[in-house]
Amino acid sequence: MVSVAPFIPHLHVDGRFAADYINGTIISRSDYFANLAFCQFGKIMSRQYTMGKRAASQVETRERIVQATMALHDEKGITHTSINDIAARAGLGAATVLRHFPDTNALVTACGQHVAAEMAPPDPEDAPELFAGLSTADERLGKLVRELHAFYERGHVRIEIAEQDRSRVEALDRFLTMLDDGRRALLRAAMAPDDPDDALIEALMALSSICVWKSLRDSRFAPDVAAQFHTAILRRAVDALIDAGFV
């Protein structure tokens, strides 16, 4: 069997390209290149394995930072959470946190991706499925109210925290604006049979906010009764606005 020990290539007098191994073995040109390829492949695979481990470690570190940040935001609020707080909770140095997330907006954006997945806000793209088989605006509005109530139940803690610091953190404003835009689009889809104008949609935005849901929840209505009551409020508001000529 040909040795694959380290070698020094040279050209012999008979013209054969060969290698001089530690044990003095001489190999042909084809064997030399086969061994060279084997060695180079081993180096490449080793380097790729090292890079893969490093990348996995980076992902794990980022996730530790994000999870620590989310927990602290829930406990202390966003602007009251410092980099040192996050580093201590994650078991890392402050410099490591800053290397991955150089400012609050970067941290909030990364956390927002996790928060959105956990909260699962109603998606306007799901409107056709959401309102399938519901022909009247009353039926569609009732369905949307139930979806919004479920969403508020899942996400009200983090929505309230985000609202507190919305004016101070740009990423929070973008996140809450995204939620508002989604709700606006769903209201328009729900009211499509009535061909609503912008003024009517904005009135429904105010009346379908999380603040209204909180008031109903704090009044100790059963969830299904609260949803029915809320739907009735919205429907009566629509009728009143139309009758008064505001929309």
Rank of each mutant, 00 (worst) to 15 (best):
D74W: 02
E60C: 01
A88W: 01
R89H: 02
P9V: 05
L11Y: 05
A117V: 11
N105K: 03
R166T: 15
L241Y: 04
A162S: 15
S46A: 15
A55L: 11
G155K: 04
R166G: 02
E60V: 06
F229G: 10
V66G: 10
L204H: 13
A189V: 07
R235T: 13
L92P: 00
K53M: 10
I65K: 00
W213M: 05
E125V: 03
E63Y: 00
D74V: 03
F41L: 11
L144S: 01
M45V: 12
K76P: 07
I159W: 04
P9Q: 05
P121S: 00
V59N: 02
L134V: 05
R16C: 12
H114R: 13
A116G: 07
A56F: 07
P9F: 03
R158N: 13
A185Y: 08
R220L: 12
V212E: 07
R154Y: 08
Y32V: 04
H149Q: 15
L144Q: 08
L186E: 01
V66C: 02
V66Y: 01
A199H: 04
F246P: 00
F175P: 01
I210E: 11
D198Y: 03
H100W: 02
L107P: 06
T109H: 11
A137R: 10
I26V: 12
R54H: 06
R89S: 14
H100A: 02
V145N: 02
S30F: 04
V145I: 13
R158K: 11
A226K: 06
H80S: 10
A199N: 05
V169Y: 03
T79G: 13
A232D: 09
L144K: 03
D165C: 06
E129L: 07
S57C: 10
A106H: 14
Q228E: 15
R220D: 15
A106N: 08
A222P: 10
Q67S: 12
I233F: 05
L241R: 07
D31N: 14
G182Q: 14
D218H: 11
N23A: 03
L72G: 07
I65R: 00
R235I: 13
F131E: 11
